[in-house]
């Protein structure tokens, strides 16, 4: 197994089911560590199933300028992980830190450091696009003197100037998507979370969104990108964690995953790990 590839310590390696794998190794980079997740666990109760561990003791770290992909099928635990990271949910066990701030004890500092975008987070329909950006910049405690220049810059960057004074409820879905991403960046956060962001988008809007993520990486931000769409992960992610039933089955760069499995396509790699875990 290559040194940078780490299967989750709780999960037998798919290559050698009898052997426990090594703990997660950090990305070999000089970039500063921005996100650190250790033993993160979340349990729920589900009708007919009793207590279910949606996330089961996962570990990973992210660095500045990196797109870290959480790849998993629906119900794998991606959204729960990201909600814990953004302090929306409290972990049952383990820790999550963003820029050194603990998500459980210093939630406000964590939230100030990150922007959260998902298909389920909505916008206020009766505010205009400009007001939306102004509102989110302010509530994320951006210095008041920087709010207007920041809002103007975002309006220009996302090309929504023509619609800046239109209410969100009147905008097309593509335009709403742009406003939603812009509002995530309103306070200029160093860490961004994109949770299944292309769900419900048409092809052109989805591609536009992927381009934004690439720009954000180029700006030196950390992006945690969750998806079940393999092509997106292949295109975007510097490292990928394969998540299944709340556990990380494997983690590494795409090349490392290819080397470890002998398979080329991410879809095949994903299926390989999942089948090995199910076996």
């Amino acid at each position: 197994m290559p040194p940078a590839l780490a299967a989750h310590p709780m999960t037998p390696s798919p290559m050698d089911p009898s052997r426990a794998s090594a703990p997660a190794a950090p990305l070999e980079s000089d970039a500063p560590l921005t996100v650190e997740v250790r033993g993160l666990t979340k349990s729920f109760l589900e009708e007919g199933r009793g207590e279910v561990r949606a996330v089961d003791g996962i570990d990973f770290t992210c660095r500045a300028g990196e797109v870290f992909g959480l790849l998993g099928a629906n119900g794998a635990g991606k959204t729960t992980t990201l909600r814990m990271l953004s302090t929306v949910l409290r972990p049952t066990a383990g820790t999550a830190r963003v820029l050194g701030h603990d998500a459980e004890t210093d939630g406000e500092a964590v939230r100030r450091s990150l922007g959260f975008h998902s298909a389920s987070t909505a916008l206020y329909p009766r505010l205009t696009a400009g007001e939306t950006l102004d509102f989110f910049a302010r509530v994320n405690r951006l210095d008041p003197s920087k709010v207007k220049p920041r809002v103007d810059a975002l309006i220009e960057r996302f090309g929504i100037g023509e619609y800046a004074d239109a209410r969100v409820e009147k905008l097309s879905s593509g335009m709403k998507q742009k406003v939603a991403i812009a509002r995530t960046l309103a306070h200029d956060p160093p860490v961004l979370i994109f949770d299944e962001p292309t769900v419900g988008l048409d092809v052109l809007n989805a591609i536009a969104l992927l381009e934004v993520v690439e720009e954000l990486r180029a700006e030196g931000r950390t992006v945690i990108y969750s998806s079940h769409i393999m092509s997106e992960a292949e295109r975007l992610c510097d490292r990928i964690a394969v998540l299944h039933r709340g556990r990380i089955l494997a983690m590494g760069t795409l090349d490392e995953l290819r080397d470890a499995t002998g398979l080329h396509y991410l879809q095949d790699i994903f299926v390989h790990y999942v089948k090995a875990a199910e076996a």
Partner: peptide, 14 residues
């Protein structure tokens, strides 16, 4: 109902 509360709660406001 609209989903805006989760958006608000992911911001820095307490």
């Amino acid at each position: 109902e609209r989903g805006t509360l989760e958006t608000l709660l992911t911001t820095a406001v307490s």
